[in-house]
Design a protein around this nucleic acid. Structure first.
Lengths: 153, 153
DNA sequence: CGAGTTTACTTGAAATCTCAACTATCTGCG
DNA sequence: CGCAGATAGTTGAGATTTCAAGTAAACTCG
């Protein structure tokens, strides 16, 4: 990768900078909204959603981490913090004593229920309301393409 | 925003989740690459680029922060760290004694020069190589749309 | 002029995230 | 069986980021 770097064309340059600024804008906007309304980082909202959708609202740490593309360490720290907030609980896995099962608590569910409408509204206002249906469709395809054939985790 | 939340349609839901995972993937990939190759977070790479492109490779703290959409605090901490690394220097602004002028150092320029090819290659491999020219064009329009008519900072 | 406001930046604490190192458990296989 | 290696998770340190609070200089306009 040192001999002849293919620099970005001007068009690619512009696309790249817009992409970085735009994705940064979306993420920061949502992070601030959740921090303000629920005292919760955006990443933890995703954890609550994942748990609430899981069978029996419970997942193993690893599966949860894998689902959200978190490192195990990040997952551990996040769940520790969420336990302190009363949003999640850990319990030992009966089958595999290495594993931990995480569940959302009633408090966590309630926080999620209360927070979701405002969060969805913010997602709309920062993303969907600004795009045409066609653009949403394009964006979906583009993102799916970027996610395809990941190197196996 | 509490009376009748317009939930996301299934299509929007899918788009939204892909978008979050994809943007997360891109950012994490680049962050890891820069951390590995230059011991530098992705955000600081942007600072070096901004400085290197500025007239006289110098900018006021505020202008730099505004350009990168950093908070002033974040900018201060970042430049402090980058001064410790020898990549940037601060000096007082002659006109306005509240301001500080930041410049890239020769070391910073060299690090940037050495790091850029690998970084560009990573940007290509994680984004541009996966998309058709048409998709790149679509993405550019979409991102520009998202960035349009920001509430004035 | 000068009091009040705005602008520019810094500081320090709290939170999150990453990375490397570590413990504990399980699995495969000779 | 029993060891080697893989898997699951935790820990703690270091780095970045955010937030609230604080300092200092410049502007405004009565």
């Amino acid at each position: 990768m040192a001999d002849s770097p293919r620099w970005l064309t001007d068009d690619e340059q512009r696309t790249w900078r817009s992409f970085m600024l735009a994705t940064q804008l979306v993420d920061e906007t949502l992070d601030r909204q959740l921090q303000r309304d629920a005292n919760m980082p955006h990443a933890y909202y995703g954890v609550l959603v994942a748990l609430s959708e899981a069978p029996d609202t419970t997942l193993r740490m690893s599966d949860l981490a894998h689902h959200l593309r978190f490192s195990q360490s990040r997952m551990t720290h996040a769940i520790s913090s969420m336990e302190r907030s009363g949003w999640a609980v850990r319990r030992k896995c009966p089958n595999d004593r290495r594993s931990q099962l995480v569940s959302i608590t009633p408090t966590g569910s309630e926080v999620l229920r209360e927070t979701a409408p405002g969060h969805v509204a913010e997602v709309r206002s920062v993303l969907f309301d600004k795009l045409s249906d066609e653009q949403v469709e394009q964006l979906r395809t583009i993102c799916a393409t970027l996610l395809a054939d990941q190197p196996p985790t």
